[in-house]
Design a protein around this nucleic acid. Structure first.
Length: 118
DNA sequence: ATTCTAACA
DNA sequence: TGTTAGTA
């Protein structure tokens, strides 16, 4: 299939699909015309990419993670090294949440002071 | 009608 | 990422 169909079947813009290729996430063949040709397997592959993006992973990390995932819609890590990195990523998110909660508490204090000040 | 590359109000 | 120009 060409990029238009893949875009429709995945809900991902053609622009994004070309960008994913540029970043090494997809490797479509090329027709003599220059048109990209995708395989059926690229449909679930794109969904996996979106899941990983939604999980907060960067393009570079996703490029390395894709080979270590089961070929299913819901990515399951097969390489132990990948699992370790994902856990590390999860920990960073936890830290970020803690910092945001502190920031929110500080804001609440200011808001409270403002209300008391009228 | 579709896709491609390159570039930016 | 969207969008647009000029092509093939």
């Amino acid at each position: 299939m060409r990029i238009g169909e893949l875009s429709r079947r995945t809900g991902v813009s053609e622009r994004a699909l070309r960008y994913y290729e540029e970043q090494g996430l997809l490797h479509p063949e090329r027709r003599p015309s220059g048109y990209r040709v995708y395989r059926d397997a690229d449909v679930p592959q794109v969904r996996r990419i979106r899941v990983l993006l939604a999980a907060g992973l960067g393009i570079a990390q996703i490029a390395q993670a894709l080979p270590c995932l089961t070929d299913d819609d819901l990515p399951a890590p097969t390489c132990p090294e990948l699992v370790a990195e994902l856990v590390k990523h999860r920990d960073r998110i936890g830290e970020a949440i803690d910092e945001l909660e502190t920031t929110r508490a500080n804001l609440d204090t200011i808001i409270g002071a403002d209300r008391r000040a009228g």
